[in-house]
Simulated scan of single mutants.
Amino acid sequence: MTGVALDATAVYRPQQDSHLLIRAVRESVPVVGRRALDLCSGSGVVAMAVAGLGAASVTGFDICAHAVRYARTRASVAGARVDVRLGSWTQALECAPFDVVACNPPSLPTEPGHGDGAPPGAWGAPSTPWNGGPDGRVILDPLCRVAADMLTAGGTLLLVQSEFADIERSLRQLSDSGLDARVVLSDQVRFGTALAEQARWLERTGRLAVGRRQQTIAVIQADKPA
C-alpha cells in the first residue's frame, strides 16, 4: 500500500464492531449475486468481506477522502471487486436501491468541543471516524429515516451501533419507516481509546455508571417487505 499511511484519526481500524457486522452479514443475509452497499466504509474491511461472499457488486461510500484512498488501495492489493467512492448517504441514495446495505456509522457520543478541530464531514460533524455528536446520532438519525429508500423490495440493512447512541431509538425509527427491524447480534466489549476518552464526560452526564468500562454493541437487521 505504497503512499497510503494508516492514520487512526482518518481511517477507522477494524475492531469488534466491524467484525460483528461482518459476522451478521455472513449469518443473516443472502449475498451471492446481489447488489451491496457498504456505507461509512472506512478501511473497506466490510466491503471486501461482502465481495468475498459473492456479491454481484459492492459499492462503498465514506465522507473521508483519506479513508477512500486507503480502502481503494487495500481492495486493489487484495484483488477485491469493490468500488469505493467519496460521499455521504445523499450520494448513496443516487445509486440506490441496493439488495444489501451494511453500515458501521460513527455512533460514539462525543463531548461538544472534543475534536472540533477536525474538518467537517458531510453531516456537519467533525469527520473523525467515531464522532456521532453529543448524543451519538448525528448520522444515525438521518440514516434511519432514509434507510428504506436505499433498499430494494426484500432488501436488508445491517447496522451496527453502540448502546450509548440509543439502540431502541434506531429500532423505532427504522420500524416507523416501514422496515422490519430487530437486533440480531450483540456483544459486550471493552472501551477502546476513543470511548475511554469520553468516559468521564459520559459519567458526568449520567449515561455511564462510574467506573464501568464496557459497552454493548449491537447489529440491527432491518428488512424491507418484498
Rank of each mutant, 00 (worst) to 15 (best):
D17E: 12
S18N: 07
H19E: 14
L21V: 07
L21S: 01
R23W: 03
R26P: 01
S28F: 13
S28M: 10
P30Q: 01
V31D: 04
V32W: 05
A36D: 06
D38K: 00
C40S: 09
C40T: 10
S41Q: 11
G42I: 06
V46E: 01
V46F: 04
A47N: 04
A47I: 00
M48Y: 04
G52L: 06
L53C: 01
G54I: 07
A55V: 10
A56V: 01
S57P: 05
T59C: 15
T59A: 14
C64R: 07
A65V: 06
V68H: 00
V77Y: 04
V77H: 06
G79I: 08
V82T: 11
D83T: 13
R85I: 03
R85P: 03
G87F: 09
W89I: 15
T90W: 06
Q91K: 11
F98S: 12
F98P: 02
D99N: 12
D99V: 07
C103Y: 04
P109W: 11
T110G: 08
P112R: 05
H114W: 12
G117N: 11
G117L: 03
A118E: 10
A125L: 15
A125P: 07
P126N: 03
P126A: 10
S127F: 02
S127N: 14
G132T: 10
G133P: 00
P134A: 12
D135E: 14
G136T: 08
V138P: 00
D141A: 15
L143I: 04
L143K: 03
V146I: 15
A147M: 05
A148H: 13
A148R: 13
D149P: 03
